[in-house]
Simulated scan of single mutants.
Amino acid sequence: MTVAVKEKVAEYLEMALGKPVDLSPLPDDTALSTLGLDSLLTISVLVTLLEDCGVDLGEHADSLVTPSTLGDLYAVADRFMEDEDSTPSGSDVSREQRSQVDFYQEKLAYEIDSADLQTALDDGQDLVVVDGRSSESYDREHIPGAISIPHRSISQDSLASLSKTPLYVAYCDGIGCNASTKTALKLATSGFRVKELIGGLDWWKRDGHATEGTAAQSEAHDHVDCGCAG
């Protein structure tokens, strides 16, 4: 694979993950999930790459498969990349589209919903769920397996024992509460990879997922699939 293709793929991955990525020592069969890309981020990278290359997604839909390894992503980039010198300069519309793509990529890079979190937990992905509320609220009810780190108590000392390898998912009540945002910001400032759980504990329960604690709910009987996987 050419250096240009690998450098371009690295740019897309850095944009999606929000951090520098060194692909040079990684073999082509490296799973994208080990780099921190879940299924939504992988699709986002693929779509952005194809749009930048001017590819009609409908025209090539039957021949495109969501990449699962670096080699897969290299192959897609190599197939569709053109000489940048031959591409026309972007118009005002293309810049607006680029801005939109950047915005939605950032949302996917920094947020996660309860369905994707449950899937990631079921798959055994390397992540840590962090409850940023008070310890009393945590004891009353929390997401199974979550650790309690009240956002007001976060400091370099309180984080010293935590590994920076996993992805951390911060949450709070989710109803008019920004404790998860404050928790995510403090963790990110300290060098951790973080996503914020959309809707917090409230939406987690509304989606029918179980909780732990003195006021825990078992798996909800009226759980309704949101249909996002369709």
Rank of each mutant, 00 (worst) to 15 (best):
T2I: 09
V9I: 03
V9G: 03
E11I: 10
E14I: 07
A16K: 03
K19S: 08
P20C: 12
D22N: 15
L23Q: 06
D28C: 05
D29P: 04
A31N: 06
S33P: 02
S33F: 04
L37Q: 04
L50R: 03
D52W: 01
D52T: 11
G54L: 10
V55G: 05
L57R: 00
L64S: 01
T66Q: 04
D83C: 08
D85M: 10
D85G: 10
S89V: 13
S89T: 12
G90V: 13
R98F: 08
V101N: 04
V101T: 14
K107G: 11
L108E: 11
L108C: 05
Y110I: 15
I112P: 01
A115T: 13
D116E: 15
L117T: 09
Q125R: 12
Q125V: 06
D126Q: 14
V129E: 05
D131R: 03
D131I: 00
R133E: 03
R133Y: 04
S134F: 00
S137T: 14
R140M: 02
P144M: 06
I149V: 15
P150N: 01
H151L: 04
H151M: 12
R152N: 12
S153T: 11
S155W: 13
Q156A: 14
L162F: 11
L162E: 01
P166L: 12
Y168I: 08
A170K: 05
Y171F: 15
C172H: 05
D173A: 07
G176I: 03
C177K: 04
K182I: 13
K186N: 06
L187T: 03
A188V: 00
K195V: 09
E196I: 13
E196N: 07
E196R: 05
E196A: 07
I198L: 14
G200E: 10
W203M: 15
W203L: 13
K205H: 08
R206H: 11
G208A: 13
A210Q: 09
G213H: 08
G213C: 07
A215Y: 10
A216Q: 12
S218I: 10
H221F: 14
H223G: 11
D225M: 12
G227S: 12
